[in-house]
Nucleic acid binder design. Structure first.
Lengths: 237, 237
DNA sequence: CGTCAGCTTGACTCATCTCAACTAGGGTGG
DNA sequence: CCACCCTAGTTGAGATGAGTCAAGCTGACG
């Protein structure tokens, strides 16, 4: 069993400049550290559905997502998929000192990302302990997210799971400065189902039910959160 | 949302000495680092059912379990519990730079642990980057364990969940050098149920079913794994 | 214009939950 | 020492939420 191959970063809107920047390894660093990181990274692009990394493959490089959405998952023995999470701009992928990735990742839509060589990165954190500390903090945050996911999966109804998922996505877009009533959902119903431990039919039915209750309104590529309070009442149950 | 309050360590049997020692933050260190850790820790004891730390409380200290079993959990809004994991000797508890614990922890049986002051620990890792790196590796391992838990909870039958749980506990005792046919289960059926997202009745029924199939045999405080191959066939499905 | 992937909806099934009764062991106090 | 209680566990019977199988809808794309 190899350590996990992924760490999310998280972004925060800077109140002074209004600029959106990651508050994880790439943000909250001094300019020296940031420029050091930029020198070892290059920008790469992935087409929709393209695989970015495969579980058990050597962890030779890692990414910081710039634009687009990534699906993180484990493949099971019987061929089924468990989606571990979705990565948004600012999140890290493959950030681990392990030899091999423990998860697979696909681009859901068009994805751009800064790519780092693993060797260059491990060399860099040897020189800059402060950077390692940031990475460590990002990983403990990621661990909390994983625990949230466990809580979402254990002993909750389909409605609570879907509501919880929608709320968490809404919160993440918010902290990216992309909040608002419309919530983009670039992933398929099957992706959401594999994330929540449900079938795609149940996800579809649950969203339809939320629409009938005037909590959300389904629109192309996402939905409108009509009644956020009602959604939160369902999700926190 | 605060970072998670827990990191498991993991132990490995040293082929040379036969001695069991943790291969995480406390193990795999040079003598200098190990003695540095020992100077800031003291041994404490907890009675069965005693709470070791509470979620949202200030993270002023952390532990390395010496003997006994610990239940890690999150309390939900409706008063229910989601058990996040069980800690065995060698595992870390509350190992995080966050201000507050994200999880609660109880001693299940009599627990002894080395206690560290958070301030002393953060001071120590500033001096010894190598130690921080060990802690970081322990955390990525913990993240993998959390992902395994997610996989266990998503879209699996009660039988697969219980089999998977028993196999993982067996594997952990093994790597502690306490393997064998009998598997100690100090936690209650309710604890297992809250860990697997099932009811205690379903856990009980499933174990009874495994016993009827001559896969396991229930004994006081645990069970005998009669047919490991059959258990693995069920768990890996 | 046809095809195909993604999505929705319906009818039926079944695994798990819920409610409930009962058993076994361990500790406590009369 | 025994009666009692209390916790943990087991087992049964019935209810139900989510899964399965199946049909049909919609929009994108070649």
């Amino acid at each position: 069993m190899t350590p996990a191959g992924c760490v999310h970063g998280w972004k925060r809107k800077d109140p002074a400049s209004g600029e959106v920047r990651p508050a994880s390894a790439c943000g909250a660093l001094d300019t020296d550290e940031r420029s050091a990181i930029e020198t070892i990274s290059d920008l790469v692009h992935f087409a929709p559905k393209q695989t970015m990394l495969r579980q058990d493959d050597p962890a030779d490089c890692m990414y910081n997502i710039t634009t687009g959405t990534v699906r993180l998952y484990r493949l099971l023995a019987d061929g089924r998929r468990q989606v571990i999470g979705f990565l948004l701009p600012g999140d890290f992928l493959g950030l681990s000192l392990a030899e091999r990735h423990a998860v697979s990742a696909d681009a859901i839509d068009a994805v751009s990302a800064n790519r780092f060589r693993r060797a260059a990165f491990t060399h860099l954190i040897d020189e800059k302990p402060r950077l390692l500390r940031r990475v460590y903090e990002a990983t403990t945050h990621e661990l909390t997210v994983a625990h949230d996911h466990v809580v979402l999966l254990g002993r909750r109804t389909a409605e609570q799971k879907v509501a919880g998922f929608l709320l968490s996505m809404r919160e993440r877009y918010r902290s990216l400065g992309a909040g608002g009533v419309t919530l983009r959902l670039p992933m398929t119903r099957q992706d959401i189902a594999d994330y929540l431990g449900l079938t795609l039919e149940t996800v579809s039915r649950t969203i339809s039910k939320l629409q009938r209750q005037h909590v959300v309104l389904v629109v192309p590529d996402g939905l409108l959160v009509v009644d956020p309070a009602a959604l939160e009442a369902l999700g926190s149950h």
